[in-house]
Design a protein around this nucleic acid. Structure first.
Lengths: 221, 221
DNA sequence: TTCGACATACTAACTGGTTGGTATGTGCCA
DNA sequence: TGGCACATACCAACCAGTTAGTATGTCGAA
């Protein structure tokens, strides 16, 4: 955990973790060998086992690092500043879209990969994935609950269930994007979710329009 | 491809294919060994390589078999008889729900698993997955287009895009279900999609098909 | 200031088990 | 009696993990 002052600018340890994240996201846990990680990080086998006691250990720590990086990315993202809960949610959707490089091939979410591969065979990983999804869902549910309270307090939907709906859309869309070899479906599906939210909250929206959708919502209801 | 008349009631070949499907769905391609498949099928290594020239070959053929079984299951399902396109779609959603055993742990879709693991590293599998998703999406899009033409011809949504939205929901929900260890989220998310469809088609309480559905939104049941 | 004791951060080479795949039987039905 | 449908035995490559060793600190006592 503690920073080590090493000869290299980026510590060997974090190079191994980074390589682990990237390789596991791309090829999965079983598809990634310790040697792969070592090669990618420019470290020898012995160096690897100096820092991590097993392949499983890097994977776990790499997943933790992945989760923390994501949490931090979203915690400090500009949409957090927005006061209106629905605007904030829509801005978050825009933010997620901005993270999708439509030209590059998606590696996919590490949690989705680990869950897919390992949830049924290694309960430690299943638990870690569940905790990750729980955390993200909770964060979403907060904003959704706020938007509901403000725009449609009488609506019957459960914010947490809608959050999980969104998580499912995100995960599944990545699988489709991997199959199709491009990210259009991810962008399109985020827009479908936006439309769904508008519907749930009873706020009008041009179903496809990106940027101008907001104008009338703030004052009216 | 061709049926072989063998001594056993279920041919060794199809036992191997079945075992391949089940194991790959549960553990993934890289997490499944040839020996695993042999053991599960009650066949020795020699028997395996008598029928398949490589591990990759079983996986490909197993995936084809998986796709064909799914196609057949849906082709002959009762919802096909329903004339009204929206009722047919809703009945299809009910059918999908009926396939989800809420007590058992989901193994997950073979296409989703293969796409996740192999799409970036083995293009043959990526292509196979894309073709699978394309086929399913086309089938959905047909019904969605019919429903749109009948209930909301002026609506702006693209049936095919909505089909991919649903596929994404299904795939992603399976990942969440694996993580959480139960299928509630899959059932709930199908209901969210049903609600979304009602919204897109503008069938609220007033429509024939939408009528009996209106009650449950949000948390499962 | 320097030397000895020890720690950290690796490397190269190896080990034992596993994996996909092969070579070579063997029994059984036509 | 030939060949199909398997079984047994095996191999080479690969894999996670180990071992033994080295280079480079760090730190405290003389």
């Amino acid at each position: 955990m503690s920073k080590r002052s090493s000869s290299s600018a980026v510590s060997t340890r974090s190079k191994l973790l980074d390589a682990g994240v990237e390789l596991i996201r791309a090829r999965g846990y079983n598809g990634t060998t310790v040697d792969d990680i070592c090669t990618a990080a420019g470290v020898t086998k012995g160096g690897f086992f100096h820092y991590f006691e097993s392949k499983e250990a890097v994977a776990e720590e790499a997943f933790t690092a992945f989760g923390e990086a994501r949490t931090e990315l979203f915690r400090t993202a500009p949409f957090r500043e927005i006061a209106d809960p629905l605007e904030r949610i829509f801005a978050r959707l825009d933010f997620e879209k901005s993270l999708i490089d439509s030209s590059a091939k998606t590696k996919g979410c590490m949690a989705g990969m680990l869950a897919q591969e390992l949830a049924l065979s290694r309960s430690e990983f299943r638990t870690a994935c569940r905790e990750y999804f729980d955390r993200v869902a909770d964060d979403w549910a907060k904003d959704l609950a706020a938007a509901k309270a403000f725009y449609a307090p009488q609506a019957s939907f459960d914010p947490r269930a809608v959050a999980l709906f969104y998580l499912g859309i995100g995960q599944g869309s990545q699988i489709l994007a991997k199959s199709f070899g491009n990210n259009e479906v991810r962008l399109a599906n985020i827009e479908h979710f936006r439309t769904y939210l508008s519907c749930l909250l009873g706020v009008g929206t041009g179903s496809r329009a990106g940027q101008k959708r907001k104008a009338s919502i703030g004052t009216g209801s």
